[in-house]
């Protein structure tokens, strides 16, 4: 499934990194601890988090994640958005809680 399909089906905002909107999403990871994501997330995952700073993009890029989904209406810091544009890794947003978006995403992705 493509990032663009997540955006359309889940009504997500696209804050930045639109050039990566056709990336394939192969799973998801939910965490606000950066080392947890670094150690346990995998290529092609959508990362659901409330962290909004630039280091999120460093990790997303090093781990080749598909996109980042910010919860609770949070917006990326300007330098996070700029880095997302540079890396072509979309930062998306939902007004809902992590629990809700995770459940919906899981339903969409599970085969």
């Amino acid at each position: 499934m493509k990032v663009s399909e997540l955006v359309n089906n889940l009504g997500l905002k696209v804050y930045s990194g639109e050039s990566g909107i056709d990336k394939e999403v192969e799973g998801g990871y939910v965490s606000d601890l950066l080392s947890d994501v670094m150690g346990n997330a995998d290529t092609g995952m959508a990362w659901i988090t409330l962290q909004t700073h630039k280091n999120v993009m460093a990790i997303a890029s090093l781990k080749d994640l598909a996109c980042v989904i910010l919860v609770k209406g949070l917006e990326p810091d300007p330098d996070m958005a700029a880095q997302s544009d540079k890396e072509g890794i979309p930062v998306l947003g939902t007004s809902g809680q992590a629990f809700e978006i995770t459940g919906k995403l899981y339903e969409m992705i599970k085969k």
Partner: peptide, 16 residues
């Protein structure tokens, strides 16, 4: 507060 400092760094290194 940034999500670092969970005490997982060195064990991540050791595992990898």
């Amino acid at each position: 507060e940034m999500g670092f400092g969970a005490g997982m760094g060195l064990s991540n290194i050791k595992k990898n």
